[in-house]
Amino acid sequence: MEADGEEIALRCTGIERRFHGVVAVTGIDVAIAKGEIFGLVGPNGSGKTTLVNAITGFFPPSSGEIRLNEKVTTGLAPYRIASLGVARTFQNLALFNGLTVLDNILLGRHIHMRPSVWRTALYWWAAQAEEAANREKVEEIIEFMQLESVRDELVDDIPIGVKKRIELARALASEPSLLILDEPMAGMNQEETEYMARFILDARDERDVTVLLIEHQMDVITGICDRVLALNYGEMIATGTPSEVVSDPRVVEAYIGGSREPV
């Protein structure tokens, strides 16, 4: 699928990923335009996370090509891909325990900072200004994500719904051009889900990010996505606008035949 005339943020061509002979995804061709909120749906085990892992460099594709802003990134290490402006959140939360919310979000600024031993030793002269400048960016995000009240708490003791928000805040702190969210609303109640949807829309509108969103709740997908790709058994079964995809017979079939409730 091609969105003509638009700038492409992410382009995947012929992506396949196998794990010891098991084909987790295959034949993925997708191009996401800048500024889009692009949904990725499919029953459990259909390869959504695997595709994201291929894009972010965790498990590079076995074959195929990935381009970010038309630059080939296939096979680059995750830290390189991060420095090219890709941020993601994890399906099972990956905050750093033992650190405060503030330090977690500050870590999102890592690629914009220059950590070193001598800067640490000569903190007052070599690091203090940089810390304050980055703190300012982080405070903007804390305000944007409404996390002021937990700023100084350890992430360990925070409820899961807020943790998901902190992880999004950490991802946003790196000022990414592509933001990948792996089930950011999982485990949230209705109200929290609506807030999260609002944050994602605002992030796109105010912070110029392109969003790749994995989500099981179809009302969220239809509510905020511009286009959607549906996977089943690692293959593309439908693409298009949310309403097209949701009513596509193969998608309905996949969900009824799959482990999830029909949509």
């Binding site: 830290y79 750093f96 650190l99």
Partner: peptide, 17 residues
């Protein structure tokens, strides 16, 4: 912070660079 990130979750550390 980077050291503590590595200590807590090295894969999550990689993804933030």
């Amino acid at each position: 912070r980077a050291l503590m990130a590595v200590r807590e979750k090295d894969y999550a550390a990689e993804i933030i660079g």
